[in-house]
Amino acid sequence: MAVITVERKPLTFLERTYLPQIAGGLKTTLKHLVAPKKTLEYPEQRPAIPTGYRGVPTLVMDPNGREKCVSCQLCEFVCPPKAIRITPGEIPADQPDRAHVEKGPKAFDIDMLRCIYCGLCQEVCPEEAIFLQNQFSMSGYSREEMVNHKDRLYELGGTLPDAHFKWDKKKAAEEHGNAH
């Protein structure tokens, strides 16, 4: 391996006193002293959230307003800080728009004191039901308040467009499909 020795230019006397550099530095800071401010005054001014931002994990509904989560518990499994806790439950057969999904979460809790916003839950979700969305500030007065329950998760998540309609297709097949 070739070694290239870079000749360093010896410093002049003035450079060795550092005084010109200090003066230059003072000039730079003086410029900034009068330069326009670059910060946002947070609570009043909100930052623009870039796409793909990983904020608070939320549960989303499909365009039909049906909950997408089927409580497969993969997010609970993958969650590194074990922030997610799901109680699975069966969807009773008397709910015409959801019965074909069979399974849904009875309870879905995300402990935001544990959550590290890693986004693995979103990545692992086979139903695209959990998303880390724009919400980035979570606060509360008690530990209990910092646990997002299912209702709150859906309230935060809202409805996202969805191109798959997996369960709609399933229902359509059940009604008109290849049944014998």
Binding site: A93, H100, E102, A173, E174, G177, N178, A179, H180
Partner: peptide
């Protein structure tokens, strides 16, 4: 193709 549909529960 479409999958067969059979009783689910």
């Amino acid at each position: 193709e479409d999958k067969n549909v059979k009783p689910k529960r």
